[in-house]
Simulated scan of single mutants.
Amino acid sequence: MALLWGSTLVVMKGAYSHLSPTDLLANRFLVGALALGLLVPRAWRANARTIGKGLLLGLLFGAGQVLQAVGLSSTPASVNGFIGGLYVVVTPLLGAIFFGKRVPRQIWIAVALATVGLGSLALDPADLGAGIGVGELLTFAASVCFAAQIVALGRFATARNVASLALYQTIGAALVCAICAAPGGIRIASSGSEWFAVLYLGVVCSAAIAVLQSWAQARVEATRASVIMCTEPLWGAVFAIGLAGDPVTLRIILGGVSILAAMVMVVRPPRRRRGLTQDEAGPRQIEQAGIGDLVGDSK
């Protein structure tokens, strides 16, 4: 997921020269919802509770996307990227506030490392010192939306509702983005380059990622998942260096090392105490299922 999200930065940079941020988001999620509905038709078969949960997830994720895009119009891109990535800090806080989730010290250290790495990768020192404005506040609101979506998905996802949650989440995000883009009229992609961007972002980086995230978060605790997702800017830097020819700097190296160290800390097996893991009080135990179950009965 993080690798695919990192690849979107190069694609979106070119698409923004033709489509506004809200138009691109509306195109992206509409195509993603259509692709999921056609490729996984059994995902439509869900009860009202699953549909409602999926739409709520889509509302949170779509709102986060729009808020970050709007915030970008009055915020330096580096600051916008850093603040938007602060969901890695907000996620464990929301889990503790709403669900009483205890976060082990090892995970807090990983969160701190990920935040340092994110700042090193995303922040340009030249953009600092401008103070906090509306753009920064909107972007922070976006990070709260992303964190809430991660926490909620961790509570909602099971091995059997993955496809349906992904479909209705994508539909919810499409509705939010379409409503926000509607006042100025939604411009549909027309040229070959625009359609390439929309199809890649919609099918691969929206539909496929929605399925991957639902499947993964049925098995990985939300705070751990957020730290791993925080490797997105690292992959973005890799693609920018490999495809766009951006230079390799000490700041990128230090940020990459910090984020990778954080990821290693959250994915290594927890210490055991009296035969039980430290995360025993974590998410509920669920039936383990293979990838093939993604397209199974989601009721």
Rank of each mutant, 00 (worst) to 15 (best):
M1N: 07
A2L: 06
L3Y: 05
L4Y: 08
S7N: 04
L9C: 13
M12K: 08
S17F: 11
T22W: 03
G32I: 04
L34G: 07
G37R: 05
L38D: 13
P41W: 09
R42N: 14
A43Q: 06
T50W: 00
G52P: 05
G52M: 04
G54P: 10
G58K: 01
G64C: 11
G64S: 08
Q65Y: 10
L67G: 02
V70F: 08
V79Y: 01
G81A: 07
L94R: 03
G95H: 01
F98K: 13
F99K: 11
L118F: 04
L121I: 09
P125C: 10
L128C: 11
G129Y: 04
V134Q: 13
L137A: 12
C145F: 00
L167E: 06
V176L: 11
C177D: 06
G185T: 07
I188A: 15
W195P: 07
G202Y: 03
C205Q: 06
S206T: 15
Q217P: 10
A218L: 05
E221S: 09
I228L: 05
I228R: 00
I228H: 01
M229N: 04
A237W: 00
G242P: 12
G242Y: 06
L243T: 10
A244K: 09
R251N: 08
I253R: 10
V266C: 02
R271Q: 14
R284H: 14
E287V: 12
A289P: 07
A289F: 08
L294H: 05
S298Y: 01
